[in-house]
Design a protein around this nucleic acid. Structure first.
Lengths: 208, 208
DNA sequence: TAATTTATGGCAGTCGCTGACATGTGACAA
DNA sequence: TTGTCACATGTCAGCGACTGCCATAAATTA
């Protein structure tokens, strides 16, 4: 039995239905070619209601990756304090991917489809970047706290910026059509992470 | 005497007038609060004409930094081929700033005002990053050409992504109110560049 | 069942942005 | 100078994203 009331269950259901309908339409017709009215019609909901679930049209595509970042922050908080910041970020990222891999099939395909659509839609990619930078602030705050850095210290900013850059490279287009399964994505992320680690001097991410 | 006809001079004049009016309005009222109609009215031009000069509302604020990237690409092409890629990028960036410092006063203040507005307007900042990433492709292509890299080599992507990240950090918020003169901006850029150079192993940006 | 909360629909309106057509202004040649 | 052409501009009509407002229907609670 669900602990949630009927009302809440219905809301989550229409929310997912909106995401699925939107991703399908974006994938087939393209992002700019599909209107909010179409998405709403596909779920048999008024356009006004769509905007009660998502603030903007791009939000419906970006909501999933956004959830991923929440997970990453939680994982980061769980990393041991003596771990160097960049290492901790890397492990948090790996944990996030693992969590995705353990998720249910519908969730995984939804996530992959979202990333595919985002990857070849410049407007959505831009939005994705914007979200990343919003979260960069939170990540910087967390790293600065871990390391006890001065408020105007450049190093935490540099560590986090480098990390988001590496993550972005990992998610970025991997050949025509993009990544089609999570293991390929995980491998790609691993490759970029090791490239970064190999390029940086030991101890670079800690104050000396 | 100007080599350009009256027509061309008029166009450049209204273009600059639109940028100045827009930046002033953005600075006083905020970006989202000012409408295209207001900008057009301030220059006594029809709203339709505004969109003949700038494709979107954010373009009017981002056009100046965008010009800067053109300069950077030109400078990069002029760097000697034996220079390691990241070093070449850094020097191209320094050359770009120098070029700005040698520009006329109106140009410099316009540039600084644009950056101030961009810095404390999330939407514009995101747009700015997006442009940087659009140009990343061109930079990657140039670096890959210089280094004779394989088409699917990660390294050029990594080098350029790291460079744009460092540049972004340099331009980013420098205390309350932002940077007020070009020399402070140059110093800030220098600081982030040296931080990056100090963190990376020698030879990291060349194939081994 | 009655009362209260809350999700939804419909409507009118703003703003960013575009296409089509008409008009006026600079460029260039006769 | 004059006429012709190219092109910048204005006007208008319209689409789509997004919002505020109010009425209604559904679910929760008493």
């Amino acid at each position: 039995m669900d602990r949630l009331g009927l009302r809440e269950r219905k809301k989550q259901k229409t929310r997912l239905a909106l995401v699925d309908a939107a991703l399908d339409l974006f994938a087939t017709q393209g992002y700019e070619a599909t209107t909010v009215d179409q998405i709403a019609a596909a779920v048999e909901v008024s356009p006004r209601t769509f905007f009660r679930y998502f603030a903007t049209k791009e939000d419906v595509a970006l909501s999933l990756p956004l959830d991923g970042l929440e997970i990453l922050l939680a994982e980061l908080a769980a990393r041991p304090a003596q771990e160097p910041p960049f290492t901790a970020l890397g492990h948090a990222l790996r944990a996030m991917v693992t969590m995705l891999e353990e998720g249910d099939l519908a969730d995984r395909t939804r996530f992959l489809k979202a990333h595919e659509v985002i990857d070849d839609t410049p407007a959505l990619f831009a939005g994705s970047v914007r979200r990343m930078m919003d979260n960069e602030r939170r990540l910087v705050a967390e790293i600065a706290r871990r390391e006890g850095a001065e408020p105007d210290d450049l190093l935490p900013h540099f560590v986090v910026a480098l990390f988001t850059t590496v993550t972005r490279l990992g998610f970025e287009h991997c050949g025509p059509g993009g990544v089609h399964d999570l293991t390929a994505l995980a491998e790609r992320l691993e490759a970029t992470l090791t490239l970064a680690e190999r390029s940086l001097c030991p101890g670079w991410d800690r104050a000396r």
